[in-house]
């Protein structure tokens, strides 16, 4: 255990980076997810096709491959960012495709009469989506999006492969440098568990507040 106390500073710094990475990526993922989900339910065929192509492509490629493609491949065509922003961009794009699918499934739960009523009072499609359908759809998918948040927390560990010094990277360094792997594992687990549990609790609270009982 002394190895943990000894490296508390490193763990703390790593934890802060993981937290920042998670929050930034999650914000991006929500934005991307909202846009792509809207595209996928819109009456405009090219937008629907683009949304579907995005989701199908991103979801079927491992996150690690996307990270490498962006961080090591894209600089060749002049798109180059430091490790942290790169990780945020890729994590947001990856998680965003899952968020989009989740929101779309939420849209399916909204009663058809809602959209019909919105149209009947003269709302355009973007209006009915923004004012009537999405607010209800989002309430229905708080819990699944909470699961995506937890999955994202765990996925941020992969950022260590492109030299972001977050919790996973501190863990990997310490586990190779010290002789107490179990203690190090314990330390990292506590960090991720704290983030995941807090996230899960926040989403449960949100769900409790906004859920519509049908």
């Amino acid at each position: 255990m002394s190895v943990l106390i000894h490296n508390l500073g490193a763990f703390g710094a790593g934890f802060r980076t993981t937290l920042a990475l998670t929050l930034a990526s999650f914000a991006g993922a929500l934005a991307i997810g909202l846009v792509v989900a809207s595209m996928r339910v819109s009456p405009v065929a090219p937008l629907r096709a683009a949304g579907t192509a995005y989701v199908e492509t991103i979801r079927n490629i491992p996150l690690l491959v996307l990270l490498f493609l962006f961080f090591f491949g894209f600089p060749k065509m002049g798109i180059q960012y430091p490790p942290f922003p790169s990780a945020v961009i890729v994590m947001a794009a990856y998680t965003g495709s899952f968020v989009a699918e989740t929101i779309r499934s939420g849209v399916n739960t909204v009663a058809r009469g809602q959209a019909e009523a919105a149209r009947a009072i003269g709302l355009t499609f973007p209006q009915s989506l923004r004012l009537v359908v999405l607010p209800q759809a989002l309430r229905a998918v708080v819990a699944p999006i909470g699961n995506l948040f937890i999955a994202l927390v765990k996925n941020t560990a992969l950022a260590s492969t492109i030299a972001v010094v977050e919790l996973g990277s501190v863990y990997t360094r310490l586990i190779t440098e010290t002789a107490q792997p179990v203690a190090i594992l314990f330390g990292a687990t506590v960090g991720y568990l704290a983030l995941a549990l807090t996230g899960g609790w926040i989403f449960a609270e949100i769900e409790h507040k906004v859920a519509i009982k049908r």
Binding site: A157, S160, G168, I175, T189, A196
Partner: peptide, 22 residues
């Protein structure tokens, strides 16, 4: 609950670098 909360990356790294220390 435990293994679903743990990043797979952490687990695999442990299996390789950690287990060899044990």
């Amino acid at each position: 609950q435990f293994f679903r909360a743990l990043p797979l990356f952490i687990l695999i790294i442990f299996m390789f670098y950690g287990v060899s220390k044990l």
